[in-house]
């Protein structure tokens, strides 16, 4: 069962990451930003925006499945920790640089998300208590 959760969390992160990467590509290809039909046509006229849709829909259904079975705390954390994978991928895919502010900011944000994950776990402790050792 643990392996099932882990797979679910990774799948959720994967879909979220796909969505963010696709958003970036879609936006970049639709530049310049303007409140106009032309911009909308540029956004929906290239394939990346549909990658974002797939990422969103996939993340939604994975999240719903996880909520039914997995403990809420780790699920909450997993649904937000895509910041890590997205940051690392943006260095590789978009030649971005992780300056000190971004690294420090990311560490604080991740620590905060972990705190919130534990807070959720504690509140739902009765129905998320892990099953006794499955030896």
């Amino acid at each position: 069962m643990k392996r099932f959760y882990l797979f679910g969390f990774l799948l959720l992160m994967g879909f979220d990451t796909l969505a963010q990467i696709s958003f970036k590509y879609a936006g970049t290809q639709a530049l310049p930003v303007e409140a106009s039909l032309a911009w909308l046509l540029r956004v929906f006229g290239q394939p990346w925006v549909y990658g974002a849709v797939i990422g969103y829909v996939g993340a939604f259904f994975t999240w719903m499945a996880l909520l039914k079975h997995a403990p809420i705390g780790p699920a909450f954390a997993a649904s937000h920790l895509e910041v890590v994978s997205v940051m690392l991928l943006s260095v590789w895919l978009f030649d971005e640089h992780l300056n000190l502010a971004r690294v420090l900011g990311a560490i604080a944000i991740i620590a905060g998300i972990v705190c919130l994950g534990f807070a959720e776990s504690r509140e739902h402790v009765s129905d998320t208590e892990p099953a006794p050792a499955e030896a």
Binding site: Q20, I21, F23, K24, A26, G27, T28, A30, L31, V33, W39, L40, V43, V49, A52, Y56, H80, E82, V83, V86, M87, S90, V91, F94, E96, L98, R102, G105, A106, I109, G112, I113
Partner: peptide, 21 residues
Amino acid sequence: FLVWIAFLSLIPLSEGVLLGS
């Protein structure tokens, strides 16, 4: 969905996802 696309197209993705937290 549209606002987020516009937002990310103007700043680095690594900065954008952090600010979105």
